[in-house]
Computed example of a mutant assay.
Amino acid sequence: MTARLAAWLARGATLALLAVLLARPAWLQPLLAPFAENGAPAIYDRASLLDLTLAHLATVAVSSALGTAIAVAAGIAVTRPAGAAFLPVARSVVNIGQTFPPVAVLALAVPAVGFGLKPVLIALVLYGLLPVFESTLAGLDDVPRDVVDAARGMGMSGWQQLTSVELPLALPVILNGVRLAAVINLGTATIGSTVAARGLGDVIIAGLQTANTAFVLQGGVIVGLLAVVVSDWIGVVGAVLVARVGGRPPVGGD
């Protein structure tokens, strides 16, 4: 009970600090003023921090959704008998996506699709494939073979086995990969400001350009708090989903 109370207090404190940073940043001016030198403003006021945060979250949500769809589909495909031969190729592709610097992806994507949101989405989708792909493989591989055999013995088709048995049982592991990919993308999305995509990178880059550490701290702290909140939210939603699908019999039945 004490641990649960501590967790809820930590969540409340995180949300409260995030709310102050976004809605009432002036309240924190005394804390940030020492980091703004030569009379520079301590509070970022070139745009609404709330608007930038919402734009940042929208970019992460879209890229994470696209990356999850691609990675889960690829993971399913290479775990089927017909696609098993493509596993090394698929793994190499997602590994390249993770190891290739997002800045380099932006540099290659901008000439093809222009400035703005599109090159950022390409970079984030590629960067977020690996955690979801590997968690999909691990989750499906951990499904007990006797359960799959029982489903097959009951006359289930391959699609029914996948959707009614394998994916529900693999869901907790897959969600861990989705959570990791979303947190990675939250931090990586800050580079989008270098190609004119709106987000919290605007605050950080403005601070770097003007040597204003106060701006850098504001952007960095907001991104860090968002990572905590989003990770926690995905965990809560995931627990609800797992409880629902886990409530069904693993093989057939109502």
Rank of each mutant, 00 (worst) to 15 (best):
D202K: 04
A150Y: 12
L87M: 14
L17M: 01
L50M: 13
V20R: 03
A6S: 14
L217E: 00
A181H: 14
A182E: 04
Q161A: 15
P172R: 00
V178Y: 09
P41G: 09
L208R: 14
G247D: 08
P25D: 00
V183F: 06
V94H: 09
A40G: 05
F35C: 04
T53E: 02
V228H: 12
A23C: 10
Q98V: 01
V148W: 00
L241I: 03
M156G: 03
P101K: 09
V147M: 01
I191P: 13
E37C: 04
V60M: 09
D45L: 01
V251G: 07
V120C: 11
V216Q: 08
V221R: 03
A26Q: 10
A69Y: 01
R179D: 14
S135C: 03
L15K: 10
G192F: 09
A55N: 09
T190C: 08
F133W: 06
V113R: 07
G207F: 01
G201T: 10
S135F: 01
V229F: 12
V20C: 04
V165C: 11
N212H: 10
V93E: 04
L28H: 11
A16C: 10
A107G: 06
V183D: 09
V245Y: 10
S64M: 10
M1K: 15
L167T: 00
V165W: 03
T59S: 15
L18Q: 01
L217M: 07
V148D: 00
G235W: 12
I234H: 11
G67T: 11
I96L: 15
N176L: 06
R46C: 02
P102G: 15
G199A: 11
V94S: 07
S157Q: 03
L57D: 07
L28W: 07
T163H: 14
Y44K: 03
A71I: 04
V93H: 07
L9N: 06
V216W: 09
S231R: 06
A71W: 07
L225G: 05
A42D: 13
S231I: 00
P111V: 02
L217P: 01
A112P: 04
I174M: 14
P168C: 10
N95M: 12
T68R: 09
S64L: 13
G192N: 05
S231T: 02
Y44C: 03
